[in-house]
Structure formats: structure tokens, C-alpha cells
Amino acid sequence: MTISQKPVVGQPVEAIPETIPNGPGAAAILAAGIGCAAIGILALAGDASKAINGLLNFYKPSGALSGVTTVAIIIWLAAWFILARRWGNKTVAMSRVNIGAFALLLVGVLLTFPPFMDLLQGK
């Protein structure tokens, strides 16, 4: 793939390498979406169920927030690791990854928003 560059006099310009497979980037993007959605889903679960809230109470002074965030970070990093292993040297359908990542990000935003959480719980 040839890419035209305007040379900038006096400054070394970063060379554009040959096409890098989009797999590693796609893995990071989709994993970020999964992590964001995990925050929202766990926040909703903790809000809806006292039992889950108790399970997520990893550090008493911070309450269930400690469990929600710790578990979400573990899910995010695990998803990133697994996807990176699977897509490391591959080229994947990036538009589908984008749609999935944006949908998951939206889930994360909506499920952390208390009025939406209440709506889902019929409060």
C-alpha cells in the first residue's frame, strides 16, 4: 500500500510500515467495549440484587464499587488477552468490531446511569 507523504524539511518523519494486520488493534478496541459494558452490567446487578451487592463488597469501606470495578477490570484484561491471542496476526472485519465495541460502550454508559437502571428494574 503506497501512501503519499509531504516531506517536512529538517525533521525525520516516521516511516509508515507495511500494512500491519488490524487484529491487535481490533482486540484492544473490542476488549475496551467489553470492559465498559462489564462496569455497567455489574453496577446494575449490584443495584438490583442484595446478594450480588454483598458478593461484590470486596473492600468494605468502598462497598460494592470495589467489586464492580475489580471484576470489570479482570473481565476487560482477560477479554483483551484472549482476543489478542486469537487475532494477533490476523486481519478482521473492523467495521463489525466497531459496531460491537460501540454497542458495548453504549451499554456501559446506559447501565451506569441511575434513571436507566431504575427503569430496567421497574422502580
Partner: peptide, 15 residues
């Protein structure tokens, strides 16, 4: 990871 090479991946730039 991609640096300037990200221009080769339009959808990745959008994300």
C-alpha cells in the same frame, strides 16, 4: 502500536 500506520485502518481511527 500503529503510529502513523493507523492511516491504513480507517475504522480503527474512528474507534
Amino acid at each position: 502500536k500503529y503510529g502513523r500506520a493507523i492511516i491504513q485502518h480507517r475504522n480503527m481511527r474512528i474507534s
